[in-house]
Design a protein around this nucleic acid. Structure first.
Lengths: 239, 239
DNA sequence: ACGGTACATCTGATGTATCAATTATGCAAT
DNA sequence: ATTGCATAATTGATACATCAGATGTACCGT
């Protein structure tokens, strides 16, 4: 799910929290169109609250990179661009291997057992959404092994954003199973304490999925060269 | 300086912006003690504004990782812990080499000229603070060459945070000059388009400064094992 | 008559003042 | 000394006011 508790600090039952999670959900599921421009008043009406918690929520969403704040003008949900997909995949390519390397240093037997348990879930037949969730949990679990909370938070953020960005691109995209081997090899390397091998496997893995996704986006016509905006619908958040 | 325009969106002359920059400055310079707990009302009085823009500023500071929000209780400026230093250096170790690698792919002659120009500034005699600023500009310039805005923003953030965290640890710490060679070699590798060499040099470089800083922190007694809090003074932000 | 500029209007973000809800604190009683 | 309650202090939310920016209109120049 989108909102598995999220952030450390942000989980008290306040109004602004509710707005934040609600908007986040809508934006992530593209129920609010990418590139759409929002206004605080209509959202406040829609959620039956005042504008302040909406502003709070917008600040948090802006921190997550899901909306940009146009000063004195309005809020705009982040459009879907090839550039954004590229940047996120690029960052994952930087962080993933590093996390794997560190995981090889720090992972405890219990954590490795958890990793194996997650990998085993690939055995079951999965639809594309469920598989993404498993992959997400797997990589986040590795990030956790790196003993670096910032890496964990950053990874979660990247996964979330990527999920939204690819919402239009991944409809079927089955390609199950074959990851399972890579993942098993990765856990093996981590368990063996071989950081370089772990990093290499993860780098390969990310490289593969990067190529796959970009090719997929191209065949779907979402990008001929680069810098193509996907969503521009102007549904201003009324109902 | 701390506030070289900063962020993209955040540079209109609003009140909340003023508060944000002001508090940011104070926190970065440790004029507000790490670990101190703030209250919105006194800050609002101090800046002669109402509480709402203060809240806004706090949200942004929280997004920057400089303060944590204790729900219904208050705001706390991030304490200085060895863990934080470790995590930031670790993240830099992941991102720096990657940025260097990508810079080798994308850097234009103009950008390379800029890099050389920055390196040349090391020739002049510098105090420790000025040298840090030069180093910062150098690494940010490389990040820019990676064509990844997120990498740039993240790098800026890490440098800012690290600067604050090390404020107590770096008083004299001259060690000028010798970096210059490493940096020249790095630019050479980038210009030659040799991404792997560039990444390796940057990795080494970060590794060195990491060892240096950690050793320094230990000799200064700031960490015997780990998880040592530096600042705990309870100066609640009165005037 | 058409295009452009200046002005007025209008929308919506930003800021202030007040209120409510919640948490922290201190005192007392066991 | 510890637990419980009552009080005080502070965040979080609401309603209202203000101000800046965008849009539309009218007027002027060509």
């Amino acid at each position: 799910m989108t909102a598995d508790v999220r952030h450390d600090v942000t989980s008290h039952g306040s109004v602004s929290e509710r707005i934040y999670l609600g908007l986040r959900q809508e934006i992530m599921h593209c129920e609010i169109a990418p590139g759409a421009t929002l206004d605080a008043a209509s959202i406040a009406r829609r959620y039956e609250v005042s504008k302040t918690p909406v502003r709070d929520a917008m600040q948090k969403l802006a921190a997550d990179g899901l909306v940009t704040i146009l000063p004195r003008s309005g809020y705009r949900v982040a459009p879907i661009t090839f550039q954004a997909v590229h940047e996120i995949l690029d960052l994952r390519a930087a962080i993933g291997p590093h996390a794997a390397r560190q995981a090889a240093r720090y992972a405890t037997p219990a954590e490795i057992a958890l990793l194996r348990q997650i990998v085993s879930e690939y055995a079951a037949p999965l639809d594309i959404g469920a598989m993404q969730q498993v992959a997400r949990r797997f990589h986040i679990a590795i990030a956790r092994c790196s003993r670096n909370k910032r890496v964990v938070a950053l990874s979660e953020n990247l996964f979330d954003e990527l999920e939204r960005l690819l919402r239009f691109a991944i409809d079927f995209t089955v390609k199950t199973g074959e990851h399972s081997d890579e993942h098993t090899a990765l856990v093996d390397a981590i368990e063996a304490g071989d950081g370089e091998r772990a990093a290499a496997i993860e780098a390969d893995h990310i490289g593969h999925s990067r190529e796959f996704l970009i090719e997929r986006l191209m065949t779907l016509g979402y990008l001929s060269q680069s810098e193509i905006q996907l969503g521009n619908a102007a549904r201003s958040g009324s109902e």
